[in-house]
């Protein structure tokens, strides 16, 4: 039974009539209105939208860090009540513990769940290799570049082998070149680990490069959300005509040309 459970590792997300508002200067600010969406197991969903449209809010609700006003989120059929070990979050900042080495940071997620240290470190090493930091295992966070630190954060999330990876602009703070390398790495990791990936991004090209579907949240709450299927073979080529076409389409949605 346990073996079976392991084999049918899922990661299906069902979002129903989700609404969320905040009190801002005495007024209610509706951020999400009646959002419904199904995310298939192993799917890669990118969330884009203008600043302040509720991307982080949606991701935090999925993570169980915030509670919706109404509606619900179900993961593999079970309602989300707070954070859970089936999900791992990668924030915009790496959020590393400065007093732990790279190995200690990557093993952290498993250790706080009670996995014995040697076992946690063993698994951590595998993912440190996966993100290409094997030589920096014993380095402290302050000795890492921004890109390396973010990769440590990614390795830490992968080490707990979540069904669902939630990423909030994980590459937003990186320079253009590191960013492209990391996008390729994320695409590879997503394929190899077969996880469901829900990622917020500001970067439309990044969204098209990584997504099965792109969720476009409108800035104006009256408007409808849109879902765009990205029907391109992988690995994707950013200069290909259809890729460029997708990007022009998405940009047009935001009134950009």
């Amino acid at each position: 039974m346990t073996v079976l459970n392991d084999d049918i590792r899922r990661g299906e997300v069902m979002i129903r009539d989700l609404s969320k508002s905040f009190a801002l200067k005495g007024q209610r600010l509706t951020v999400l209105r009646n959002l419904s969406l199904d995310i298939a197991p192993g799917e890669s969903l990118m969330i884009v939208g203008p600043s302040g449209c509720g991307k982080t809010t949606l991701l935090r609700i999925l993570a169980g860090l915030d509670v919706p006003d109404s509606g619900e989120v179900r993961i593999d059929g079970a309602p989300v009540l707070g954070v859970g070990t089936d999900r791992a979050v990668i924030f915009q900042e790496p959020r590393l513990l400065p007093w732990l080495t790279v190995l200690g940071n990557v093993a952290f997620g498993l250790e706080v769940r009670g996995v014995p240290r040697t076992q946690a470190c063993e698994r951590a090493r595998r993912y440190i290799r996966l993100v290409g930091l094997a030589e920096f295992e014993d380095a402290f966070p302050r000795q890492l570049s921004g890109g390396m630190a973010q990769r440590v954060g990614i390795a830490r999330a992968l080490t707990v082998q979540p069904e669902i990876l939630l990423l909030d602009e994980p590459l937003g703070a990186l320079d253009a070149m590191t960013k492209i390398t990391m996008q390729e790495e994320l695409a590879r990791i997503w394929r190899e680990e077969e996880v469901t990936m829900v990622m917020v991004t500001h970067d439309l090209e990044e969204a098209i490069y990584l997504a099965d579907r792109v969720l476009v949240l409108p800035g104006d709450k009256g408007a409808q959300v849109a879902l765009v299927d990205i029907d391109l073979p992988r690995p994707r080529n950013r200069n290909e005509a259809r890729f460029v076409k997708y990007r022009q389409n998405l940009m047009a949605r935001f009134g950009l040309h």
Binding site: G84, T85, F91, R95, V112, R113
Partner: peptide, 19 residues
Amino acid sequence: KLIEMSATFGARRLTTFRR
């Protein structure tokens, strides 16, 4: 943010305090 990070990994309050 570090405390929140710890919580997302399922750390209990005492574990987060200690670690």
